[in-house]
Design a protein around this nucleic acid. Structure first.
Lengths: 180, 180
DNA sequence: ACCGAATGGTCAAAGCATTGATTACTTGAG
DNA sequence: CTCAAGTAATCAATGCTTTGACCATTCGGT
């Protein structure tokens, strides 16, 4: 009506909303860091699209969740480890891993055993069935990853990865709240 | 044991695992698209760190969830809309929005009313309390966003956003499974 | 050697995600 | 006009995530 940066129009979509929001928020609150907002909004939207696609095209059809896949994935690549380590590597909380292991163990994909050196710890590892499952599952997963990555040139992929790493190596990352 | 690209070493962390995983998966399965794997792994890890930080430093202390914030956010910027539109703009499923609205309405932040033109639809909008809440909450949110973005130069930020947009405009995105 | 502090894992409560079914209401073809 | 098909919202069931509490075990300073 008065001074909308752009009328809502009914034309807004998941993506065009980013531009609209950056302009409108700047108009509502002059102190907004608009470019930071655009960056985080875009980052989050792209990632949730990729994750949703991978989860629904590669994981759910096989009866797994993305977090379950992550646990199997780290066990597949790094071998037997403490539950604590699996949580750290997969980016989940210890409680989530503990809950997840109940399902994975019930399905016969993962084996738990008591740690020998440290009586508190639980060592987890893939069963043969788990190894077969992750091998098949990862192929489907990687095929979709490949399709996403193919839309960028090799240089662009390298640049994107470098910028993302810079983001996580920065000071904000150092101050950030982390799991645990 | 035999030909590990790098021994697990106990030195693996959330981040160093990316390099390790790319090398190891390539050794296990020759057909792997390693660069695609690195891209998706990095993208997901950065995003989950940012989201976790924003959620735990800006939202949870105020008693909200990140998804609740997203709904208030789109209502704040685009005004009253159908629940269906709020789902589309916030990137949630209609069922999730419906569930979320129960909480937001109970807390007096959002008002529901029946659509006039379409008797099936529900129109949702911010209450004055909701407007006050999102204004305060967004400031805290944007302050953290700003801290993250400050680790990149303006050029780097522009490049990063451009590459992310290219990713979502690509053909993989077009083929991707989407919500609804 | 001991006892307090720290650590690893699990559980409980609460919240949000998903898919699939159900209930309204609207639309459009015949 | 009518009835089938489509659409909006909600509900139900299930699963994952979070925090915070708790237990068992280990570590470390005195």
């Amino acid at each position: 009506m008065t001074s909308d940066p752009a009328a809502p129009d009914d034309r807004l979509t998941f993506w065009s909303f980013v531009d609209y929001a950056v302009a409108k928020a700047g108009a509502e609150l002059p102190s907004v860091d608009a470019e930071a907002m655009r960056l985080v909004l875009t980052l989050h939207r792209v990632t949730s699209m990729v994750v949703y696609d991978l989860e629904s095209s590669a994981h759910r059809p096989n009866g797994w969740s993305w977090p379950g896949f992550r646990v199997l994935f780290v066990l597949w690549l790094a071998g037997e480890m403490e539950a604590k380590t699996a949580a750290e590597l997969s980016g989940l909380s210890r409680a989530s891993v503990s809950a997840l292991l109940k399902t994975l163990e019930k399905d016969g994909l993962v084996a738990r055993r008591r740690g020998e050196h440290d009586g508190r710890s639980v060592l987890i590892s893939l069963t043969p069935a788990g190894r077969a499952a992750i091998t098949r599952g990862f192929s489907a997963h990687n095929a979709r990853e490949s399709a996403w990555a193919a839309d960028l040139t090799p240089d662009e992929r390298a640049t994107l990865v470098a910028l993302l790493r810079k983001l996580m190596d920065g000071s904000a990352s150092a101050d950030a709240k982390r799991r645990m």
